[in-house]
Amino acid sequence: MNATIALYLAQDGIINGAIYALLGVTLVLVFAVTRVIFVPQGEFVAWGALTLAALDAGSVPGTAWLLVVMGIAATVLDTLRQSKTITLHAIGGMVVKDIALPVLLLLAVQAIAPGKPALWISVLLTLALIIPMGPLVYRLAFQPLADATVLTLFIAAIGVHFALIGLGLVFFGAEGFRTTPFIAETFRVGVLAIKGQSLAVLGVTAMLLAGLYLFFERTMLGKALRATAVNRLGARLVGIPVRSTGRIAFALAAAIGALSGMLIGSLTTIYYDSGFLIGLKGFVAAIAAGLASYPLTVMAALGVGLLEAFSAFFASAFKEVIVFSIIIPLLIWRSLKAPHSDEEEE
């Protein structure tokens, strides 16, 4: 191995690490606010890339239909669950927000897609399709379990992952796709060729992380989310509606997942089930940071990316084995550090 290869691997590792950082940070956020270990985050990554790829190709992505289906399901289930207390007004609100809007979006996509829209329009459409799915997943799966243990929520998250991966197969098929890069040019710096898309990944990641920082430090809504994370009961007692903070956290998760997918979609081929492993690597980083610290998560994510890049070079067949085995000592370390708790109690 020479310096050029090392630099190339490092570039690769940092780019992937940046994506893992975004996902890891979101996982920490969702866990803190809702106590859900959101394994299905990876599916949003795959769907982001595949939706963009479909729009690129001038076809209507399956997610446009899926959003309508999810909206109908959420409206029906929420109405059934609160059948005694719900008002007609509230049902009407859901019909408009969760069914009519997605239908309009579907019609818009059907009108726009065949003309192969410009990249920025496709990106916005993709975000418009994926972001609402976050809160919908929260309402369908997790909100009724709000009082359950972390463990139960985790099992539910695995169930959601299973369901979404099957839906991904239905809507996108087993074929893999690549998306158009945001920046197609390649730059040369000495011996190193730097893909423009790599710069896009780093730039967007840095902007998103900065944006998240400002959101949590400067806005009342961001502080309310943090407050919910620090002390859920305290948050309820000052009147913060913890359900809507949960939905906001899930919307953020979907947004960041979809963006990550669109960013890496041009660097690697994405299949309907690619998101799972990508998301899990974000997890390795989040866990290394104890599911608590954002800066540590970012650092750990870069470490995961580098580890993956270099092990791909030295022992490509065992890349995944290495990346997922590293989590075990991390978990032990975290378990030992965690204060003795009665969490396993029912």
């Binding site: 943090r226 620090v230 002390n231």
Partner: peptide, 11 residues
């Protein structure tokens, strides 16, 4: 104002 205060300790 609950017995355990339930403050946002890291804020």
């Amino acid at each position: 104002v609950p017995e355990k205060r339930e403050l946002f300790t890291t804020m």
